[in-house]
């Protein structure tokens, strides 16, 4: 039986009346986590703001705290506004997301509908279908790198259907490389949608559906009026998880194409990685990273506030 907890950070039920021992223990128990958050969020973000206002690079030979010697004010940010590689990468990231997430959703939902009721083999099929999700993403990237070689199995299967030798150079064609990356992401993460949506479908009470059947409601009508309204929260959770994770897309993609050919499959994470490791202009990277952090904070705060109001 599946149940939904209150989604956005639920307010904990008022704990037992505050006695001093409890308050002290509570403080001590949460302290390590608080310190780790402080260590990874507050300090780095201050450092990031500072560095983003300079032209500092680790190659300059001066330590980061003296980066103010290379002060350039907001130049990094104005550069960002006209950086076509950045905007291209952002657009590509959103494009990949807009293709992957809906496809994963509908495939996962379709599959979940097939699994709602019992049938022979259900358990084993279920387990096997979840496997792609558990494969290490970098390894999945390597699998698809092999599959999409011009002499590889994908072309072999296509040849079998076409009846002639197909030898498409998937990963060296700009458009096809992006398609290949999208296919790999869909392969890996459709199971996640399937898993979550199935958990939601199973939780819809059977008696209501049965009643609807007795009243002569067709499948689509039952789905639309009984199942879908109850699935709303779960659907939002599933979509939100994939949107967040998909925005970070790196491992699979970087192993498959390295962002190439040229910059044809460069997403935000890949672009930042390349500027960090290859061009080493860290002041600029800090500015990009901050711009992304700020926009994401705004978007997520807005989304969480809406969700809270909704529930």
């Amino acid at each position: 039986m599946t149940e939904i907890a209150d989604i956005p950070p639920p307010r904990t039920e008022t704990p037992a009346p505050p006695d001093r021992e409890a308050a002290r223990l509570g403080f001590r128990l949460t302290l390590p986590a608080q310190l780790l958050v402080l260590f990874i969020a507050v300090f780095p973000i201050c450092m990031q703001i500072y560095i983003s206002l300079t032209d500092w690079s680790p190659l300059d030979g001066i330590p980061w705290w003296r980066a103010h010697e290379l002060w350039i004010g907001l130049t990094n940010y104005s550069d960002l506004a006209s950086d076509f590689r950045f905007w291209g990468a952002l657009w590509r990231t959103l494009f990949v997301m807009l293709v992957c997430v809906p496809v994963q959703f509908f495939l996962g939902l379709g599959l979940a509908i097939l699994f709602v009721d019992e049938f022979p083999g259900r358990r084993i099929f279920y387990s096997v279908l979840l496997v792609p999700m558990m494969v290490v993403p970098a390894v999945a990237g390597y699998m698809f790198f092999m599959l999409f070689q011009s002499g590889g199995p994908v072309n072999d299967i296509l040849s079998a259907f076409a009846g002639r030798t197909v030898s498409i150079a998937w990963l060296s064609d700009p458009d096809l490389a992006l398609a290949a990356v999208i296919i790999a992401d869909i392969w890996q993460w459709t199971p996640l949608m399937f898993l979550i949506l199935l958990a939601g479908l199973v939780s819809v009470p059977k008696d209501q559906q049965l009643a609807a059947v007795l009243l002569g409601a067709g499948w689509w009508r039952r789905f639309r009026t009984i199942i879908l309204p109850r699935m709303k929260t779960i659907i939002i959770i599933a979509l939100a998880i994939r949107v967040i994770e998909n925005f970070k897309i790196f491992d699979t993609l970087y192993i498959m194409t390295g962002g190439g050919p040229g910059i044809a499959t460069e997403t935000i994470s890949v672009y930042i990685y390349k500027v960090t490791q290859q061009e080493l202009i860290w002041g600029y990277v800090a500015a990009i990273a901050l711009a992304i952090l700020i926009s994401l904070s705004i978007v997520s705060a807005f989304a969480i506030a809406r969700l809270r109001r909704g529930s």
Binding site: P9, G26, T30, Q34, V37, P44, L296, S297
Partner: peptide, 22 residues
């Protein structure tokens, strides 16, 4: 004990941010 009421949201934020950005 209701301690650390800021943690749930802070940790969600931590998860939302792409690691590349910090």
């Amino acid at each position: 004990f209701g301690s650390g009421g800021n943690l749930p949201l802070a940790l969600i934020q931590l998860r939302i941010f792409p690691p590349m950005a910090v």
